[in-house]
Simulated scan of single mutants.
Amino acid sequence: MRYFIGTTAGVALVGGICVALAIPAASRPPAHRAAAHAPAKASQASGSCPVAGIDPEANQPLAEWKEPGVSTCRPRMVNGYPVPDATCTPGAINPTLTLAVLQNPKFRTGLCVRDNATSPGQKDKTYRWYGIPKPAHNTGQTQTCEKDHLISLELGGADTLANIWPQCGPSKTVLRKRYFKQKDLVENFLADQVREGAIPLADAQQGVASDWTQYIDAATAYYARHAATRRHPSDQ
Protein backbone atom coordinates (compact mmCIF):
# COMPACT_ATOMS: atom_id res chain seq x y z
CA MET A 1 0.00 0.00 0.00
CA ARG A 2 1.07 3.55 -0.61
CA TYR A 3 -0.07 6.85 0.80
CA PHE A 4 -3.40 8.04 -0.64
CA ILE A 5 -4.65 11.41 0.49
CA GLY A 6 -6.79 12.42 -2.46
CA THR A 7 -10.55 12.59 -2.00
CA THR A 8 -13.43 12.17 -4.40
CA ALA A 9 -15.61 15.21 -5.01
CA GLY A 10 -19.18 15.24 -3.91
CA VAL A 11 -18.94 13.00 -0.87
CA ALA A 12 -20.87 14.18 2.13
CA LEU A 13 -22.29 11.08 3.68
CA VAL A 14 -24.02 11.34 7.04
CA GLY A 15 -22.24 10.51 10.30
CA GLY A 16 -22.30 6.99 11.54
CA ILE A 17 -21.10 5.54 8.26
CA CYS A 18 -18.23 3.74 9.94
CA VAL A 19 -20.63 1.70 12.05
CA ALA A 20 -22.82 0.90 9.05
CA LEU A 21 -20.06 -0.74 7.09
CA ALA A 22 -19.47 -3.62 9.50
CA ILE A 23 -20.59 -6.77 7.69
CA PRO A 24 -23.67 -8.41 9.21
CA ALA A 25 -22.78 -11.73 10.77
CA ALA A 26 -25.36 -13.53 8.68
CA SER A 27 -23.83 -12.31 5.43
CA ARG A 28 -20.18 -12.79 6.27
CA PRO A 29 -18.45 -15.67 4.51
CA PRO A 30 -17.45 -18.44 6.89
CA ALA A 31 -13.91 -18.37 8.19
CA HIS A 32 -11.75 -20.91 6.42
CA ARG A 33 -8.99 -22.89 8.00
CA ALA A 34 -5.95 -23.96 6.08
CA ALA A 35 -6.05 -27.73 5.94
CA ALA A 36 -2.36 -28.45 5.73
CA HIS A 37 -0.39 -25.55 7.11
CA ALA A 38 2.08 -26.00 9.90
CA PRO A 39 1.54 -23.82 12.97
CA ALA A 40 3.14 -20.44 12.49
CA LYS A 41 6.46 -20.09 14.25
CA ALA A 42 7.17 -16.97 16.24
CA SER A 43 10.29 -15.40 14.83
CA GLN A 44 11.72 -12.00 14.24
CA ALA A 45 10.95 -10.93 10.69
CA SER A 46 14.35 -9.36 10.23
CA GLY A 47 16.99 -7.60 12.24
CA SER A 48 15.36 -4.29 11.36
CA CYS A 49 11.83 -5.22 12.49
CA PRO A 50 11.18 -3.60 15.87
CA VAL A 51 8.30 -5.93 16.80
CA ALA A 52 8.95 -9.44 18.13
CA GLY A 53 6.85 -12.55 17.53
CA ILE A 54 6.23 -12.08 13.79
CA ASP A 55 6.73 -14.90 11.29
CA PRO A 56 6.87 -13.11 7.92
CA GLU A 57 6.32 -16.40 6.06
CA ALA A 58 3.16 -17.43 7.92
CA ASN A 59 0.36 -18.21 5.49
CA GLN A 60 -3.28 -19.14 6.01
CA PRO A 61 -5.32 -18.95 2.78
CA LEU A 62 -9.03 -18.23 3.16
CA ALA A 63 -9.79 -21.15 0.82
CA GLU A 64 -7.97 -24.13 -0.58
CA TRP A 65 -5.39 -22.88 -3.07
CA LYS A 66 -3.00 -24.20 -5.67
CA GLU A 67 -0.84 -22.30 -8.12
CA PRO A 68 -2.91 -21.33 -11.20
CA GLY A 69 -1.91 -21.95 -14.78
CA VAL A 70 -0.97 -19.31 -17.32
CA SER A 71 -3.90 -17.10 -18.39
CA THR A 72 -6.40 -19.10 -16.33
CA CYS A 73 -7.46 -16.26 -14.01
CA ARG A 74 -10.16 -13.71 -14.81
CA PRO A 75 -10.92 -10.63 -12.68
CA ARG A 76 -14.50 -9.40 -12.62
CA MET A 77 -15.97 -5.93 -12.26
CA VAL A 78 -18.03 -5.05 -9.18
CA ASN A 79 -19.39 -1.55 -8.61
CA GLY A 80 -17.19 -0.35 -11.45
CA TYR A 81 -13.95 -1.74 -9.96
CA PRO A 82 -12.04 -4.99 -10.57
CA VAL A 83 -11.95 -7.77 -7.99
CA PRO A 84 -9.69 -10.78 -8.46
CA ASP A 85 -10.60 -14.29 -9.52
CA ALA A 86 -11.48 -15.93 -6.19
CA THR A 87 -10.08 -19.28 -7.29
CA CYS A 88 -6.70 -17.80 -8.18
CA THR A 89 -6.58 -15.18 -5.42
CA PRO A 90 -8.75 -16.16 -2.45
CA GLY A 91 -6.74 -14.03 -0.05
CA ALA A 92 -4.57 -15.22 2.82
CA ILE A 93 -3.75 -13.97 6.29
CA ASN A 94 -0.62 -14.07 8.39
CA PRO A 95 -1.91 -15.25 11.78
CA THR A 96 1.14 -13.83 13.59
CA LEU A 97 0.01 -10.32 12.57
CA THR A 98 -2.41 -10.08 15.47
CA LEU A 99 -4.46 -7.06 16.45
CA ALA A 100 -1.87 -6.27 19.13
CA VAL A 101 0.87 -6.27 16.49
CA LEU A 102 -1.13 -4.09 14.10
CA GLN A 103 -1.87 -1.65 16.91
CA ASN A 104 1.80 -1.44 17.85
CA PRO A 105 3.08 1.96 16.62
CA LYS A 106 6.48 0.39 15.90
CA PHE A 107 5.05 -2.09 13.37
CA ARG A 108 5.95 -1.32 9.75
CA THR A 109 5.01 -3.64 6.91
CA GLY A 110 8.13 -2.80 4.94
CA LEU A 111 10.43 -3.66 7.82
CA CYS A 112 8.60 -6.70 9.17
CA VAL A 113 6.87 -8.68 6.40
CA ARG A 114 7.03 -7.22 2.90
CA ASP A 115 8.97 -9.34 0.35
CA ASN A 116 9.94 -11.91 2.96
CA ALA A 117 7.65 -14.81 2.05
CA THR A 118 7.79 -14.00 -1.69
CA SER A 119 10.20 -11.86 -3.65
CA PRO A 120 9.12 -9.18 -6.15
CA GLY A 121 10.20 -11.56 -8.92
CA GLN A 122 7.99 -14.35 -7.57
CA LYS A 123 5.07 -11.93 -7.37
CA ASP A 124 5.54 -11.19 -11.07
CA LYS A 125 4.13 -14.66 -11.81
CA THR A 126 0.66 -13.32 -11.05
CA TYR A 127 0.77 -11.28 -14.27
CA ARG A 128 1.10 -14.53 -16.23
CA TRP A 129 -1.72 -16.18 -14.31
CA TYR A 130 -4.05 -13.31 -15.21
CA GLY A 131 -2.75 -13.06 -18.79
CA ILE A 132 -1.57 -9.48 -18.30
CA PRO A 133 1.73 -8.28 -19.79
CA LYS A 134 3.96 -6.81 -17.11
CA PRO A 135 3.98 -3.08 -17.88
CA ALA A 136 7.22 -1.24 -18.55
CA HIS A 137 8.00 2.01 -16.71
CA ASN A 138 5.43 1.04 -14.10
CA THR A 139 6.27 3.69 -11.54
CA GLY A 140 5.20 7.14 -10.45
CA GLN A 141 2.74 8.89 -12.73
CA THR A 142 3.22 6.16 -15.36
CA GLN A 143 2.18 3.34 -13.01
CA THR A 144 -0.77 1.40 -14.40
CA CYS A 145 -0.58 -1.82 -12.34
CA GLU A 146 0.13 -2.83 -8.76
CA LYS A 147 0.96 -6.29 -7.44
CA ASP A 148 -1.72 -5.91 -4.82
CA HIS A 149 -2.11 -7.79 -1.55
CA LEU A 150 -5.82 -8.58 -1.58
CA ILE A 151 -5.81 -8.51 2.21
CA SER A 152 -3.31 -5.74 2.84
CA LEU A 153 -0.31 -6.35 5.06
CA GLU A 154 -1.53 -3.68 7.47
CA LEU A 155 -4.73 -5.74 7.86
CA GLY A 156 -2.75 -8.87 8.66
CA GLY A 157 -2.56 -10.20 5.11
CA ALA A 158 0.06 -12.76 4.14
CA ASP A 159 2.90 -11.91 1.77
CA THR A 160 2.15 -15.03 -0.27
CA LEU A 161 0.91 -15.68 -3.79
CA ALA A 162 -2.58 -16.76 -2.68
CA ASN A 163 -2.99 -13.16 -1.54
CA ILE A 164 -1.49 -11.28 -4.52
CA TRP A 165 -2.95 -10.25 -7.88
CA PRO A 166 -2.12 -7.67 -10.57
CA GLN A 167 -4.55 -4.80 -10.17
CA CYS A 168 -4.37 -2.71 -13.35
CA GLY A 169 -5.95 0.38 -14.90
CA PRO A 170 -7.60 2.43 -16.00
CA SER A 171 -4.61 3.93 -17.80
CA LYS A 172 -6.32 7.02 -19.22
CA THR A 173 -6.96 8.77 -15.93
CA VAL A 174 -4.90 10.57 -13.30
CA LEU A 175 -2.89 8.34 -10.99
CA ARG A 176 -5.04 8.93 -7.91
CA LYS A 177 -8.13 7.69 -9.76
CA ARG A 178 -6.60 4.38 -10.82
CA TYR A 179 -8.07 1.26 -9.30
CA PHE A 180 -5.14 0.40 -7.06
CA LYS A 181 -5.11 3.89 -5.57
CA GLN A 182 -8.81 3.62 -4.79
CA LYS A 183 -8.16 0.29 -3.06
CA ASP A 184 -5.33 1.92 -1.09
CA LEU A 185 -7.91 4.35 0.28
CA VAL A 186 -10.09 1.43 1.39
CA GLU A 187 -7.16 -0.40 2.98
CA ASN A 188 -6.03 2.68 4.93
CA PHE A 189 -9.58 3.29 6.10
CA LEU A 190 -10.09 -0.29 7.27
CA ALA A 191 -6.72 -0.28 9.03
CA ASP A 192 -7.77 2.83 10.94
CA GLN A 193 -11.09 1.23 11.85
CA VAL A 194 -9.48 -2.04 13.00
CA ARG A 195 -6.88 -0.33 15.15
CA GLU A 196 -9.55 1.82 16.76
CA GLY A 197 -11.81 -1.17 17.48
CA ALA A 198 -14.63 -0.04 15.18
CA ILE A 199 -14.40 -3.21 13.05
CA PRO A 200 -13.13 -6.65 14.17
CA LEU A 201 -9.94 -7.64 12.38
CA ALA A 202 -11.42 -10.88 11.04
CA ASP A 203 -14.43 -9.01 9.62
CA ALA A 204 -12.19 -6.54 7.78
CA GLN A 205 -10.06 -9.36 6.39
CA GLN A 206 -13.04 -11.36 5.16
CA GLY A 207 -14.80 -8.27 3.83
CA VAL A 208 -11.91 -6.91 1.79
CA ALA A 209 -11.16 -10.39 0.42
CA SER A 210 -14.75 -11.04 -0.68
CA ASP A 211 -15.41 -7.57 -2.18
CA TRP A 212 -13.14 -4.63 -1.42
CA THR A 213 -15.40 -2.29 -3.42
CA GLN A 214 -18.15 -2.39 -0.81
CA TYR A 215 -16.11 0.07 1.30
CA ILE A 216 -15.39 2.69 -1.36
CA ASP A 217 -18.12 5.14 -0.35
CA ALA A 218 -17.45 4.77 3.37
CA ALA A 219 -13.69 5.19 2.93
CA THR A 220 -14.06 8.23 0.68
CA ALA A 221 -16.46 9.93 3.09
CA TYR A 222 -14.33 9.08 6.11
CA TYR A 223 -11.20 10.67 4.70
CA ALA A 224 -13.12 13.63 3.32
CA ARG A 225 -14.29 14.33 6.87
CA HIS A 226 -10.94 13.59 8.51
CA ALA A 227 -8.46 14.82 5.88
CA ALA A 228 -7.04 17.47 8.19
CA THR A 229 -6.63 15.23 11.24
CA ARG A 230 -6.04 11.61 10.12
CA ARG A 231 -2.51 10.38 9.45
CA HIS A 232 -2.65 7.78 6.74
CA PRO A 233 -0.88 4.51 7.58
CA SER A 234 2.66 4.19 6.30
CA ASP A 235 4.05 1.24 4.39
CA GLN A 236 7.61 2.05 5.42
Rank of each mutant, 00 (worst) to 15 (best):
T173H: 02
V14A: 15
H37I: 10
A227K: 12
R114G: 04
G10P: 08
W65K: 02
L190G: 02
E64L: 12
C18L: 10
T89H: 00
D55N: 15
A218N: 07
L155K: 02
L21V: 14
G10W: 08
M77I: 15
L153R: 08
F107I: 05
W165I: 00
W65D: 03
A58F: 09
A191G: 09
Y215L: 01
G140Q: 09
R176M: 11
P82Y: 14
G121N: 15
W65Y: 06
R76Q: 15
G15L: 10
S27Q: 15
I199P: 01
A191Q: 08
A35M: 07
G207E: 03
D235P: 01
D192M: 06
T87K: 13
C88N: 08
K66E: 12
S46P: 05
K177M: 13
G16A: 00
Q60L: 12
D211H: 05
P75C: 08
T229W: 00
K147Q: 12
A58K: 10
W65H: 06
G197A: 07
S48F: 11
A162F: 00
A221S: 15
H226M: 10
A117Y: 08
C168I: 07
S27V: 12
N138S: 09
K181F: 14
C145G: 04
T139P: 01
L102D: 04
V208C: 00
G157N: 04
T8M: 10
M77K: 14
E187M: 02
S234W: 03
K183Q: 15
S46Q: 04
Q103D: 03
N104V: 06
E67T: 14
T7K: 06
N104L: 07
A86P: 14
V78S: 12
Q214A: 13
L153P: 02
D148F: 04
T118N: 04
L201F: 04
N59S: 11
N138P: 09
P166T: 03
P82G: 07
F189L: 11
A34S: 15
K106P: 01
Y223M: 13
Q205I: 05
A86F: 06
V70S: 14
I132G: 05
V194G: 04
V78T: 12
V51N: 12
T109E: 13
D211L: 03
I216Y: 09
G91E: 08
D184G: 09
P90A: 02
D115T: 06
L97D: 07
A227D: 06
L185W: 02
A25N: 07
G10R: 09
A38Y: 01
P233D: 11
Y222Q: 03
G80R: 10
F4T: 11
G16V: 00
R176Y: 12
E57S: 13
A20G: 12
C49K: 02
D85E: 07
D217R: 05
S43C: 13
T89Q: 00
L21I: 15
V14H: 09
D148G: 01
Y81G: 02
I216W: 01
C145N: 04
V113Y: 09
L175Q: 11
C168Q: 08
I199C: 06
P166D: 05
S152H: 08
E187W: 01
V101P: 06
R128E: 14
A45E: 12
A22G: 08
V83Q: 11
Y215P: 01
